[in-house]
Simulated scan of single mutants.
Amino acid sequence: MATGERSKAYRRTRQNYDSALLVVASVVRSWDPCSLIGSGAPPDEFDAEIATVVAHIPCISDAASAAAALSSVFSASFESSLFSPARCAAPADGETGLPADSAIRKPCFQGSAREQG
């Protein structure tokens, strides 16, 4: 791949990441798990979780997998009993929630050596 092509591919990838980050940030901040932002926490309170959810986008194909991603990420950061996939279903809804956009998704390599190592 020529340098110019690599540069264009990087910009496309970076633009896709930035777009996904904005969408996921909007969804998570509107959802406001644990009502932290509504209680006065800064808007960047969930930035680490938002970035981790964005990393899950390649594996998100529908609302159920989006809810599973949210559940996994927020269960790791907060009390896991509060973030079942069922509780995470509303922000994962396809119309108002996390993107399942082919422009920002790639195939998920679940169980592959790549994922494990």
Results as ranks from 00 to 15, higher is better:
residue 70 L to Q: 01
residue 58 P to M: 08
residue 87 R to Y: 06
residue 70 L to W: 03
residue 5 E to L: 11
residue 39 S to N: 10
residue 102 S to L: 12
residue 108 C to S: 10
residue 61 S to A: 12
residue 108 C to M: 09
residue 51 A to Q: 14
residue 23 V to F: 01
residue 42 P to Q: 13
residue 71 S to Q: 05
residue 28 V to W: 06
residue 80 S to M: 03
residue 113 A to D: 15
residue 43 P to R: 09
residue 106 K to C: 09
residue 18 D to Q: 12
residue 108 C to G: 07
residue 20 A to Y: 04
residue 77 S to Y: 15
residue 98 L to G: 02
residue 51 A to C: 09
residue 100 A to R: 15
residue 36 L to C: 08
residue 116 Q to M: 14
residue 17 Y to L: 15
residue 104 I to Y: 02
residue 23 V to E: 13
residue 32 D to R: 12
residue 98 L to V: 01
residue 83 F to V: 01
residue 32 D to V: 08
residue 115 E to M: 13
residue 34 C to F: 10
residue 14 R to S: 07
residue 55 A to E: 11
residue 103 A to R: 15
residue 4 G to I: 08
residue 69 A to L: 05
residue 108 C to N: 08
residue 8 K to V: 10
residue 23 V to D: 10
residue 15 Q to S: 14
residue 102 S to K: 09
residue 84 S to M: 05
residue 64 A to G: 09
residue 57 I to G: 02
residue 54 V to R: 03
residue 31 W to F: 11
residue 26 S to W: 07
residue 75 S to I: 01
residue 71 S to M: 09
residue 63 A to M: 04
residue 72 S to A: 10
residue 1 M to F: 11
residue 14 R to L: 10
residue 111 G to T: 10
residue 15 Q to M: 07
residue 60 I to W: 08
residue 97 G to I: 06
residue 19 S to T: 08
residue 79 E to I: 09
residue 19 S to H: 12
residue 35 S to D: 13
residue 47 D to N: 08
residue 107 P to E: 12
residue 77 S to M: 05
residue 95 E to D: 11
residue 102 S to Q: 14
residue 13 T to A: 15
residue 17 Y to F: 13
residue 113 A to C: 11
residue 115 E to Y: 12
residue 89 A to M: 14
residue 104 I to H: 00
residue 1 M to W: 14
residue 16 N to W: 09
residue 15 Q to N: 13
residue 76 A to N: 07
residue 114 R to S: 06
residue 71 S to N: 07
residue 43 P to I: 08
residue 106 K to I: 00
residue 68 A to C: 00
residue 23 V to I: 14
residue 46 F to Y: 15
residue 98 L to M: 07
residue 52 T to W: 02
residue 41 A to T: 04
residue 75 S to M: 01
residue 100 A to M: 13
residue 74 F to R: 09
residue 33 P to M: 02
residue 106 K to P: 00
residue 35 S to R: 14
residue 51 A to F: 02
residue 75 S to G: 15
residue 83 F to K: 06
residue 59 C to Y: 03
residue 48 A to I: 13
residue 28 V to N: 00
residue 35 S to T: 07
residue 110 Q to T: 14
residue 69 A to S: 15
residue 37 I to G: 00
residue 41 A to Y: 05
residue 114 R to A: 10
residue 18 D to F: 01
residue 59 C to L: 09
residue 91 P to N: 03
residue 41 A to C: 02
residue 62 D to C: 08
residue 97 G to V: 08
residue 45 E to T: 11
residue 48 A to D: 09
residue 104 I to V: 15
residue 91 P to Y: 08
residue 96 T to P: 00
residue 113 A to P: 11
residue 65 S to D: 02
residue 85 P to C: 03
residue 47 D to A: 06
residue 106 K to T: 10
residue 66 A to W: 00
residue 59 C to P: 01
residue 98 L to T: 01
residue 47 D to M: 03
residue 22 L to C: 07
residue 82 L to I: 02
residue 112 S to H: 15
residue 81 S to D: 14
residue 29 R to I: 04
residue 74 F to G: 01
residue 19 S to F: 11
